[in-house]
Amino acid sequence: MENLFLQPVDLTKLLYVLLLVAVITVVFALLIVLVSKVCAVKVDEKEEAVKENLAGANCGGCGYAGCADFAKALAEGKAELSACGPTPNENKAKIAEILGVEFVAGEEKFAVVACSGGINAKNKYDYVGNEGCSAQIAFIGGQKFCEDGCLGGGSCMTACPYNAIHVKDGVAYTDRSMCEACGVCVKKCPKGLVHLIPKSAHVYIACSSHCKGKTVMDMCKKGCIGCGLCAKNCPHGAITMVDNVAVIDYSKCNGCLTCVAKCPRKCIKEI
């Protein structure tokens, strides 16, 4: 093998190397500058500024392909700022300033699953097959007797970009600390069981069944039977019974937890 270190320095070759690299560098640099001048595309400054203030999570909760797409729609006035969950309020205020619109601070929210059935709810049949709620629902409306029950197929879990939903005992649960209120799961759930509620909320109703009490009793151990005890006992009148299921008005609730204690089915849950 040749000794690389003891060879005489070939100055002409070294010169060639330097020249060649320099020429290629300069030529391509000039070419790139030329191309970028010729192909300059006008970038909307407003759009860029909006994009910088968005959360940048690209979760798709707003219904656009990502934050860049949403920023474009915002700049063109096609989208509402409130469609975005993850962006914090102070950034939203900045964006509103850039866009020149009035900013109304929306309440920070998070998602809850309004069902506590799962293994407590009776099955019509044992489902074996493709994962995901939409596949299961094609089979006579899913395996649960309850029409408004969580199927436990985990469609919301796989859709959640923040890993904030888990299926436990056949029913989906949300993790309050991880949830960014993007709303992807709300759109994904075929039964419409996931709701966004204010972050300041103290309780939520973990059932969506509109059936009569007797029917719910037969189908599920945890479902709301529409007895109305919570509505009668709430000291602030925050709970009303709508179509056999309790509904909370969060603007009136102050978190006394009377309803949690009174509910005979334990389907009002403390957060």
Binding site: K13, Y16, V17, L20, V21, I24, T25, F28, L31, I32, V35, S36, V38, C39, A40, V41
Partner: peptide
């Protein structure tokens, strides 16, 4: 012809990067 075959990798990387950059800009425009 210059006897500089050993420069192939550095030259190739440079050229590929520059081409890709230019193609991207041209695509964006046209």
């Amino acid at each position: 012809p210059l006897g500089l075959e050993f420069l192939e990798i550095i030259v190739f990387i440079f050229i590929i990067a520059a081409i890709v950059q230019m193609i991207e800009m041209a695509l964006k425009k046209f």
